[in-house]
Simulated assay, not measured.
Amino acid sequence: MRQHEVMDCYGTELELFSIWMKNKGMTKSTHQAYLSDVGYFLQSVYPTEMKLIAKMDIMRYMALCRENGAGDEARNRKLSSLRSFFKALIEMEHLSANPAALIAKSKQEKNRIPVYLEENELEELFHAIKGKYYIRNAAIVLLMAYAGLRVGEVHRMNVQDFRQDGSIHILGKGRKWRVIPLPEALQSFLNEALEDRKDSRQGKEQPFFVSQFGRRLSIRMIQTVADDTIKQLKDVLPSLADKQLSSHKLRHSFATMQIRSGTDIRTLQELLGHASIETTQIYTHIDNKQLRRAMDNISTKIPARK
């Protein structure tokens, strides 16, 4: 099936959805991801008329996604995209019902222990940063590993978000701001990155991280900076060769370090910008001292071998 045929059939609905997302203030990355998810779904139901799309069509699509290897998290994201799509069409007075509204999300595995780097490995990661744009790239990696920023948050960061009091004001998921007071060492790196920064060519916008062409550094490039640094780390520490590491795992490493340093779960939730404390609780399973002490209490009660 050709893409233009789907666009001809559902172009009006996709345009309405795009307008709705812009009015909601959704980030560019979310906007693109939702349109992509909805586009794949519409390919599966083409050429069904929009008002005739039913709950069964969506359930059939979700089953197809599972057959093609999509996990629970991926399918739940696709379902969220479709719910938003039909909700948008209702609010734009183009449809009267949301066929995705009553479809239950897949149950995801809870309390999975996230992949992370140990503190000594983070130190090696820092030493693995090399290249022409060392100061800029070091600031990016440090913000993810020692301030817990998401890739998209690093991408959206502007010069004015780094305040004179040494804190950064971060626009996170759900268009919510949070304030992170930075340690002096990290402040120093950001100040150095500002001095080393190329002038922006984006008019009034003053992105903190700028490409060699004077444009806001893309999400893809920020991921590449992190991934290349991680690759260098694996060359230095072959024991990490089989570990599934990525830019987002640096955020996991930050959360792990905070828990091990005694940070309470509510404060960590604020630092990470999680909407629900349940999301933050996965990190308590990494180094739960109470559980360890509880098991130590019975260590002397285990019978010795005769």
Rank of each mutant, 00 (worst) to 15 (best):
R2D: 15
H4A: 12
E5N: 14
V6Q: 03
D8L: 14
M21L: 15
M21R: 05
K22Q: 09
N23M: 15
M26E: 11
L35S: 09
D37G: 03
V38W: 02
Q43V: 11
Q43M: 14
V45K: 11
K51H: 14
L52A: 13
M56Y: 09
M56F: 09
Y61I: 08
M62G: 10
M62V: 13
D72Q: 10
D72P: 14
E73K: 15
E73H: 14
R77T: 00
R83V: 05
K87H: 07
M92S: 13
L95G: 04
P99W: 01
P99V: 02
A100E: 03
L102I: 03
K110H: 08
R112W: 00
V115Y: 00
Y116V: 08
E118R: 13
E119D: 14
E123H: 13
E124N: 02
L125D: 00
F126I: 11
I129S: 02
G131D: 06
G131V: 05
R136M: 03
N137Y: 07
N137H: 06
M144K: 03
A145D: 02
Y146M: 10
G148P: 02
R150Q: 06
R150V: 01
R150L: 04
G152C: 10
R156E: 12
S167C: 12
I168T: 07
I170P: 01
G172V: 04
W177H: 14
R178Q: 00
R178I: 06
I180G: 01
S188A: 10
F189C: 14
L190D: 00
N191G: 09
A193K: 02
R197A: 02
D199E: 15
P207R: 04
V210A: 00
R216V: 04
S218Y: 10
V225Q: 03
D227G: 03
K231I: 04
K234G: 01
S239V: 14
S239D: 14
D242Q: 14
L245V: 02
H248P: 13
K249L: 01
L250P: 01
L250G: 04
A255F: 06
S261M: 12
T263I: 13
T263V: 15
Q269C: 01
S276W: 06
T280H: 07
I282D: 05
H285T: 00
D287W: 07
Q290A: 11
L291Q: 14
R292K: 15
R292N: 04
A294F: 04
I298S: 00
T300Q: 08
K301W: 09
I302F: 08
K306Y: 08
